[in-house]
Nucleic acid binder design. Structure first.
Lengths: 120, 120
DNA sequence: TGCCGTTATATTTGACAGAATATAACGGTT
DNA sequence: AACCGTTATATTCTGTCAAATATAACGGCA
């Protein structure tokens, strides 16, 4: 995994915590989107520069915290396995992205003021 | 430090990251408020059930990431030392709390929908 | 100068998360 | 039954961060 050190300095971070787990958050959202795009957990992991194992454990965590799985994985077969985002998964992602956007917007004015108080 | 396991399941978490540091976030906001209330880093730490050392390192991190310090500490003397929140500190805290509130509000409708998809 | 409670700082220890590694399972096709 | 690339799972290693521990510095006052 790789952090992006150069950039932002702000981030409104929405996390859904369920007991010990973080059921959903920015990283899982990105992963979910990449699985939707690539049809593969492994490929999504590669693009996020994280290990397959880690990606897979995140998928597990998501799946066990929602009523219905957000990703359905298949192994073997002529297609050599793969993964797909479920309808629930799509809905979760869409809602989350809307929330992120709304949060950013709601915060931006005060954020600009706060930025002035920061070094650099 | 102690997590509160029983409660929420949602939290819009605003973090200001500066390089490797988290310049400000929910924990530091609470700490800052408690220092303002108690006039002591040690007492604030106690109320948050964290070690003095940790609280102090958080204060350091805040102070070095803002243009002006958010907390001014005094040691020795007849008053036996203590700490006070600066004007900058008060402004930072106020802005942060407003941002938190605005974020929560902006998100609440979608959050209710998302909750329905969660187990429990 | 010794006392106090607070801040300030260094050092060691321990726990845990994630990385790394290794291997198995799958199942349609040929 | 051999093959393929993907998912699934266990195990070990390791680096990092927080906790724990210890100690020093401060400075007005009696």
């Amino acid at each position: 995994m790789k952090s992006r050190p150069g950039s932002p300095s702000l981030l409104p971070r929405l996390r859904i915590v369920a007991g010990k787990d973080i059921a959903f958050g920015p990283g899982k959202a990105e992963l979910l989107a990449l699985v939707a795009e690539t049809g593969s957990i492994g490929e999504a992991a590669k693009r996020m520069e994280m290990s397959y194992m880690r990606a897979w454990s995140l998928v597990q965590m998501m799946n066990r915290n929602f009523k219905a799985p957000v990703i359905k994985a298949v192994r073997g077969g002529n297609e050599r396995g793969g993964a797909a985002v479920t309808e629930t998964g799509r809905r979760v992602l869409a809602l989350y992205q809307r929330m992120e956007k709304a949060s950013r917007k709601a915060v931006q004015a005060d954020w600009r003021d706060l930025q002035k108080l920061l070094r650099h």
